[in-house]
């Protein structure tokens, strides 16, 4: 309650202004994350051009977590998300579908996909739509492997595979394209980001742009970046997808979320990913 003494006697107007400000006071910025002593992660950097004037600095969600949670992410032996990556590796090398192919039949090893996470979602010319990593995996399964029952968009198998693809891209600078044919989806994502949803009428921006650093109950609000996904959530004891997180955030507004895998969430993912251009891929990150 240190604020009390500070604010005692000031007018309501001043209080409101102070409250609306960003509370980075008890957030420890300037920390360094190097995974396994070798992969350097950019946890804070200059905002991309389209956010000039909105943020002075963009921060990875890592910055807002406790020392213990932060430390878990610094070593693969301590990061429970890596167990799912291992399951992903196994699936990567296992033949599936009528063609008798595994992922490895076409993509020699996971490392050959190291550039993927940092540049997705991205425009797919052939299908004429913006694709997420999940959509790309489904495309391979159905169009190249003859898999009759492809992974569910948010299934454990899908999350394992997405975690594998993120893990090999760790340290790469997020750089999703938002212009050209992707611009329409990007605009839709932007509109969704600033829309107040649900009975509580809350937008992503009200929590993650106007209040990052502030406590909302027991949670320090972050900037809501997606560079750490799929994230291992201590609360779930599992890895969670980007769309699942969006769904949870809209649910918490007493709202009706869009469906996981819907065009709206794909557009939102593209837009939110573009807000992190300049950060680095961290998945599977550890979050509470």
């Amino acid at each position: 309650m240190t604020r009390k003494a500070l604010l005692g006697g000031t007018s309501a107007a001043i209080l409101a202004v102070l409250a609306a400000g960003v509370g980075l006071a008890d957030i420890r910025t300037g920390g360094e994350l190097v995974i396994n002593g070798e992969i350097a992660i950019v946890t804070e950097t200059e905002p991309p051009e389209h956010l000039a004037g909105v943020f002075d600095t963009i921060y990875s969600g890592w910055v807002f977590r406790t020392d213990e949670t932060r430390a878990m992410q610094a070593d693969d032996f301590d990061n429970p998300g890596m167990l799912y990556v291992e399951q992903g590796i196994e699936a990567f090398n296992t033949a599936m579908g009528t063609e008798g192919n595994s992922c490895a039949s076409c993509h020699e090893n996971p490392e050959s996909l190291a550039g993927v996470r940092a540049t997705y979602p991205q425009w797919d010319e052939e299908h004429g739509e913006v694709q997420t990593v999940e959509m790309q995996i489904l495309e391979c399964q159905t169009e190249r492997m003859g898999v009759a029952e492809p992974y569910g968009y948010d299934s454990q198998e899908m999350r394992n595979m997405v975690a594998l693809i993120a893990s090999v891209g760790r340290g790469q600078t997020v750089n999703v394209a938002m212009d050209g044919p992707a611009s329409e989806a990007w605009e839709l994502g932007r509109e969704i980001y600033y829309t107040q949803y649900g009975q509580m009428e809350l937008s992503c921006a009200q929590c993650h742009e106007n209040n990052y650093g502030n406590l909302i109950r027991a949670d320090h609000l972050s900037q809501g970046q997606v560079n750490g996904f799929p994230t291992y959530r201590l609360k779930n004891a599992n890895i969670v997808s980007i769309h699942n997180r969006f769904r949870g955030c809209i649910r918490d507004t007493r709202g009706e979320p869009y469906a996981v895998g819907s065009p709206e969430f794909v557009a939102l993912e593209l837009y939110v990913a573009s807000r992190g251009n300049g950060l680095t891929v961290e998945g599977p990150a550890v979050r509470n």
């Binding site: 107040q196 009428e201 929590c207 009706e256």
Partner: peptide, 24 residues
Amino acid sequence: SIMPAFYKVSGFTRPGDAFTTRPA
């Protein structure tokens, strides 16, 4: 305001049935 309106029942975008994710 970010503060929710606690006594309001209309004019929302995609209101839900409390925290169930179902429509209101």
